[in-house]
Simulated scan of single mutants.
Amino acid sequence: MTTHPPARPPFDPELDAVLEAIGRVMSPTITPDMIPAARQEPSRRPTPETLAAAGLEARDVVIPGFAGASIEVSVVQPVGRTGTGPGIFHIHGGGMILGDRWSDLETFAETILRHDAVFVTVEYRLAPEFPDPVPVEDCYAGLVWTAENAAELGIDPDRLLIIGVSAGGGLAAGTTLLARDRGGPRLCGQMLFYPMLDDRDRTVSTLQIDGVGIWDRTSNITGWSALLGDRRGTDDVSIYAAPARATDLSGLPPTFIDCGSAEVFRDEDVAYASGIWAAGGQAELHVWPGGFHAFEGFVPGARLSQEMIAARANWLARMLAP
């Protein structure tokens, strides 16, 4: 007998029109055999000229990663920046299997300029070649390096914030938990864009988003299986790999979480915010009605996208204020 996904919230009409066009050239589903081809997409690293035209400059630094390996971070800041100001430690998305540290720079260029911030973006190693705990430990190593070099980087240690996008949101949540539990760098906030938090494939939203949208249930299983292998869905998964498994969310910095109502990550993201509130913490949660995964990147001019972008900017302004 064929089973069908449960009814799901409708996509916002303005987004749905674009999603239909996207679906003609891009599958909502990524399976393991598709990973090599998906990685052939060129890096979005800008040229120095492109950066300069945007008012930014960047330099690469090789730092110690997990277990003695070397990894790279890039330090991006306004051209000619001097003095001390906010620091943003960034972790890119890609389902643990795709992307690089430049994937989201366009999203944050205006933020860097507006806040005169130093933006440190980390090249963590990807699964399945580098399974858990390598990705989250690489990210933690990058955060530690950023904090230890705050004075040289021109970062006010009281205004160091972590941002992660999608899989990077899950890694940012795991990195923040590591910082809490190891007595590591103190963060003024964690900003989690539609974070990938739960490997167990049990929520209503993961059942709803199957074969539709962007990054559906099968894609999610592909990403988590690459990261965890046979441990996915078992009791042998740490809270740092899958932060939705954490039962104690006390002692975390102020947190921002957003997602769409029509995406796989909706229920785990709502639950994570609820867990922070239950532990007496501070969290701001936005569930955008009719939003599919990463909709603001695909349809930035849509009304819902503009509202999402504005909510993020408002929260950042509060967190990064002197």
Results as ranks from 00 to 15, higher is better:
Val212Gly: 12
Ser238Gly: 13
Asp199Phe: 11
Met196Cys: 13
Val136Asp: 01
Arg217His: 04
Val165Phe: 15
Tyr124Thr: 03
Ala172Lys: 01
Pro195Val: 04
Ile239Val: 15
Ser250Gln: 06
Asp258Lys: 06
Met196Asn: 11
Tyr140Lys: 08
Ala246Tyr: 13
Tyr194Lys: 11
Gly233Ala: 10
Asp201Arg: 02
Gly170Val: 05
Glu137Gly: 09
Asn220Val: 00
Pro185Ile: 10
Ala147Lys: 10
Glu137Lys: 15
Thr175Val: 12
Gly183Asn: 12
Pro157Phe: 08
Gly164Leu: 04
Tyr140Ile: 06
Ile214Arg: 10
Asp199Val: 11
Pro185Glu: 12
Cys139Asn: 09
Met191Lys: 14
Ala127Val: 00
Gly233Gln: 09
Leu153Asn: 00
Leu249Lys: 12
Tyr124Ile: 07
Arg200Gln: 14
Ile214Glu: 07
Leu228Met: 13
Thr218Gln: 14
Gly168Trp: 01
Ser205Asp: 01
Trp224His: 09
Trp224Gly: 07
Ser261Glu: 11
Gly233Asn: 11
Leu171Gly: 04
Thr206Val: 14
Pro185Lys: 13
Ala147Arg: 10
Gly169Asn: 04
Ala179Thr: 11
Leu228Tyr: 12
Gly174Gln: 08
Leu160Met: 13
Arg245Asp: 01
Arg217Ala: 08
Ala246Leu: 14
Ala151Ile: 03
Arg232Glu: 07
Phe256Lys: 08
Leu187Asn: 10
Gly168Pro: 04
Thr206Glu: 06
Ile221Gly: 14
Gly223Leu: 11
Glu148Pro: 07
Ala173Cys: 05
Arg202Gln: 15
Trp224Gln: 08
Gly213Met: 09
Ser250Gly: 12
Leu207Val: 00
Arg202Glu: 15
Asp138Cys: 09
Ala172Ile: 01
Asp230Glu: 15
